Amino acid sequence: MAMHRRTQLPGAHPLARALVLTAAATTALAVTAGGSAQALPGSPADPPSKRDVKAQVEQLYEEAEQASERFNAAQEYQHRLQSETGSLQGQVALAQDELNRLRGELATVAAAEYRSGGIEPAVQLMLASDPEGYLARARSLDQVAEREHETLREVVERQRRLDQRRAETSAKLADLEEARRSLAENKQQIQQRLNEAQKLLNSLGATERARMVAQDAREAEQRATRGTDRLDLGTVPPASDRAADALAAAVSKIGSAYVYGATGPRTFDCSGLMYYSWRQAGVTLPRTSQAQAYAGQRVSLADARPGDLVIFYKDMHHVGMYAGGGVVVHAPYPGARVRYESVNAMPVSGVVRL
């Protein structure tokens, strides 16, 4: 994909007419009550300042995104548990069927011995009216006895394996139930933070909210363009054709809404945009920003090339795609749509080349 040195900035117009908070809160495995925003200063009658609201909303969104990435990881784990549990349950059913078959064979032998009066098979052969065939039949008897003993051993071993599979299945089911419980709890916690943010935003009024959104978009544009009216993505080419395809997919989604847990094609969270874009290039990434941080080769920020993943913050809870010229394309947070952003707008944790 040819990268123009200077290009118009898509999505640079006001990114939303009103700040939309998504109720599709997809949540985390751990959001503590201690991370909630501080109380507004002053008495309840004092109107909060725009600066206070903006700072607290940004903090709530950051907590929500941290939680969302942990939730994405938990959800991925839950899906894996469901698959493993289903496989184990299938193995248990097959093992039980085979065990029943082997037990049926032993029951048939036992019934035959009972009908013969309980006489040992060797005695029956010795009393038979065909002494000439005795030796041949004795050899057959040894073979039958050996097969019976082998069947018994197999029954014992299969029972042991079946018990082990059942224990594994029970443990997986318990883990699955715990994962479901945690997801439900943390979804509620994320929604609480979104509600808190919405309450703060509502305190400003619709006009002021729209101004704040527009200002946020303008500031992001100024950071990305370094105060000019055009975007300079430089001339460094992508690291590969696949990276070029992934970047083209990400850029095509500029203007798309941010929704926690979304992976496209119309809405995204930060790691969901990376997941979607690289899927268009034929590569399946891990679902979370933390896992994506280890999905490829680490390179320095100075050596970053278009299509590389840029991981942000110490706990790696945010990710964008390097577009060139010190600019990334990313899904920021609720209310702000997919857009270009200066790579220096957030602390960089690492750069990953796929």
Rank of each mutant, 00 (worst) to 15 (best):
L29N: 14
K199S: 11
T26D: 15
L285A: 08
N72R: 14
I311M: 07
M3T: 11
M274I: 08
E69A: 06
A30H: 08
S116T: 10
Y313L: 11
A112C: 00
R305L: 04
V251G: 02
D303C: 03
T7H: 07
P238I: 11
G133H: 10
A30D: 10
P10A: 11
A243Y: 00
V92M: 10
L19D: 07
G86N: 07
P47W: 00
L99S: 02
L9P: 01
R180V: 05
G34W: 03
R226D: 03
L81S: 13
M274S: 13
S49Y: 00
F268K: 04
G320Q: 10
S203G: 00
E62S: 04
P332I: 05
G90Y: 09
L40F: 00
Y258S: 07
D303E: 08
Q189S: 11
S129D: 14
D303T: 04
E157D: 15
P286F: 06
S203C: 00
A331V: 13
P238S: 14
N72D: 13
A179M: 09
P237D: 07
E178A: 10
N202L: 03
A304G: 04
Y333Q: 15
H13W: 13
A345K: 13
G117N: 01
R101S: 11
G350Q: 03
S289F: 10
D229W: 02
D315V: 04
L106H: 06
Y275S: 11
E341T: 11
Y258T: 05
R226T: 03
E98T: 10
A45Q: 06
A45W: 01
A293K: 02
Y322K: 08
S68K: 09
Q297S: 07
T169K: 09
A122Q: 14
Q91H: 07
A220R: 15
P10T: 09
R223W: 06
V213D: 13
A33N: 04
T7W: 05
T267H: 06
S43G: 05
L106K: 08
E185V: 08
R70W: 01
Q192N: 12
E219L: 14
H13R: 12
L173P: 00
E177F: 05
H13G: 13
E150G: 15
S140H: 13
Q124F: 08
A28V: 10
G35W: 07
W278S: 05
H317C: 11
Q66N: 11
E84F: 00
E157H: 15
G264W: 02
L173S: 06
G35H: 01
A281H: 02
R337N: 12
R279K: 14
K50Y: 04
G11N: 05
L40Q: 00
R51N: 04
M346W: 02
V327R: 01
A64V: 10
P237L: 09
A295N: 08
G264R: 01
N72F: 08
R80Y: 14
A295S: 12
A55E: 10
A110N: 01
R115P: 02
F268M: 06
G307E: 03
Y134L: 15
K50T: 09
K187S: 14
R17D: 15
L94D: 08
E168M: 06
